[in-house]
Design a protein around this nucleic acid. Structure first.
Lengths: 330, 330
DNA sequence: CTGTTAGCGCGTTCAA
DNA sequence: TTGAACGCGCTAACAG
């Protein structure tokens, strides 16, 4: 009934060559006569042959898989943070065409070092680290060289990041140039390298515009935006522009402003960071610094596939401002 | 330098048993003496042994992986649809503890049948189908029995779905009971089984409340909500309640209402469907029918792991209403 | 209960 | 350029 899956052996037999030759043809090796090559491909077509991934993995020593590794609370964050989805999207687009797959590991904080070690051991073609703190990334990197961190990490750990500081600067400059007179910020998570970059960009742009940098601490979440805004409004009722460290935070800002009776963009202009789909879904549509997450993830993936990463592999991608209604001139 | 990874052989030797016995112990087989079992685990600990997944996969015939299969446009949808993230979240939580991994395949429409066949061939423990139309799901199911569809599918295809009709009904009833007098709908994608269920729920609840069902067609996207609302407002300026087929659509409704100068919930009450994080992030926070996506995905995953699915495996989960500000009494 | 023996399907030497 | 042979690490029959 169930026709057994054809193996390389079968292909070789049908093509009148040995299994080894068939293997060479299929693996793209160049040391084969055009004649044999043709016969093998023909046989493959004829038999409907498909390589057995497990067997190949065993023979080669590692499977054709890119491992995405995220440290977070699986239940909560994966479902409510567009960032991760964008990363996957980028990986998958880089994988399209190749027969490499994507595997996802979400690791929760308790016991993260051990779990990371476990994963490091089984990594396939390479691993992408997301939201992995520098110390853990370094540890991982020591166990598995085929790795790239999304966002700046420990020295020696390959990474790709966005121009966070420059992005934040351009956001603030935009606000002042379009007539705002007092721009404040709700920052990201303390210690996070992206947050730090954006904070310093906000800082320098404020100073350059002749203003004292005013900001509230945050944590890349909705509540941070909401609470921070309430706090800032109380201390600075005359503020007319807000820079949020991420779109989710910006959503919180939006709600706080609405509850306080301030209109966006009429009374207060708002700029977020990420330019995730939240920005385009918000009312009013939100101006946001575009972090090219998909692009960055794809870049890293391609580098891993080509095994061109190394301790000094680093990329920094531009983060252009995406202007929408939330920052329209008053 | 690099100490070779210990193999089962090594473990057996260290424990004074054969490789086979060591394998039995580790694979949880019960046919081993407590004595041997203890010595093997001890050796495992001692050597830091970890099974080679590829080898195991080859020997067993399939790898320890759950395959998530989505048909959509990778670039666009994965990054902008919370639904998929929630599915992954559910799968991962069901996988926590086991040493099974999750693999993700996003297949784009052109050439979907072939791509699905490819994936069907390499499925590990089982596959979860998301957004795969019934015909394709049936085809897949014919090639790989270890499968569950998220959302009702073709007959004979195991599935888990939410009580779409009941959820929609309760949403509409809620609106009428809290004083609304003309509730309309923006529906989901034509032909989609979830959309159909919600549509019929809206329909019956409207009729029961003594109203003619009024709705606009949609497609589970932001634009649908926006355009549909504009259209409905034009034809029915007296509407004071809107049921949207999904949260994303509801976001579009929100924007259209805002642009038309209608206040939510003062002038118009709004209820979405899904209760994704969009609902809690929106301003005002959105009332939504909770689709327990994570739970459903976890359920399916556990069933696959226990291989307790079969052609007649079906689950229907309740979809309770989550009330927030967008439907507060006027 | 345990050890022995075959494969699982493929990559990769090493000669020819 | 090609083929034969070995090994990857593990599971599953089959004897004992």
């Amino acid at each position: 009934m169930e026709a057994k899956k054809p193996t390389l052996e079968d292909v070789g037999r049908a093509a009148g060559v040995s299994r080894a030759t068939a293997s060479r043809v299929i693996s793209g090796g160049r040391k084969v006569s055009d004649d044999a090559r043709g016969r093998v491909w023909h046989a493959v077509e004829l038999l409907g042959y498909h390589p057995d991934l497990a067997a190949r993995a065993l023979a080669k020593g590692h499977s054709d898989v890119i491992d995405l590794i995220v440290i977070d609370d699986a239940a909560v964050m994966l479902g409510s943070n567009p960032y991760y989805s964008r990363v996957m999207s980028g990986i998958l687009s880089a994988l399209a065409g190749s027969d490499t797959q994507m595997r996802v590991h979400v690791i929760e904080q308790p016991d993260a070092p051990r779990r990371l070690d476990d994963v490091a051991r089984i990594v396939g073609v390479g691993a992408l680290l997301v939201n992995v703190p520098p110390e853990l990334a370094a540890r991982f990197s020591a166990r598995c060289a085929r790795v790239v961190s999304l966002g700046h990490s420990a020295p020696g750990v390959p990474s790709v990041e966005a121009e966070n500081a420059e992005g934040a600067r351009s956001a603030v400059q935009h606000l002042y140039r379009t007539g705002r007179r007092k721009v404040v910020a709700v920052h990201g998570k303390q210690g996070n390298s992206c947050a730090t970059g954006r904070r310093s960009g906000f800082h320098s742009a404020s100073v350059e515009a002749g203003h004292e940098p005013i900001g509230a601490e945050g944590g890349f979440c909705l509540e941070a935006g909401f609470d921070g805004t309430k706090e800032l409004l109380a201390a600075h009722p005359d503020l007319d522009g807000i820079f949020a460290a991420c779109d989710l935070t910006a959503m919180g800002v939006l709600r706080a402003l609405e509850e306080s009776g301030r209109r966006v963009p009429d009374d207060v202009a708002l700029v977020g960071f990420d330019d995730s789909f939240l920005a385009s879904v918000a009312t009013p549509a939100m101006t946001s610094v575009r972090q090219p997450v998909e692009h960055m993830a794809a870049l890293a993936t391609r580098a891993l596939l080509a095994s061109e990463t190394g301790p000094n592999w680093h990329r920094v991608e531009p983060a252009p401002l995406q202007i929408r209604r939330s920052s329209a001139a008053a």
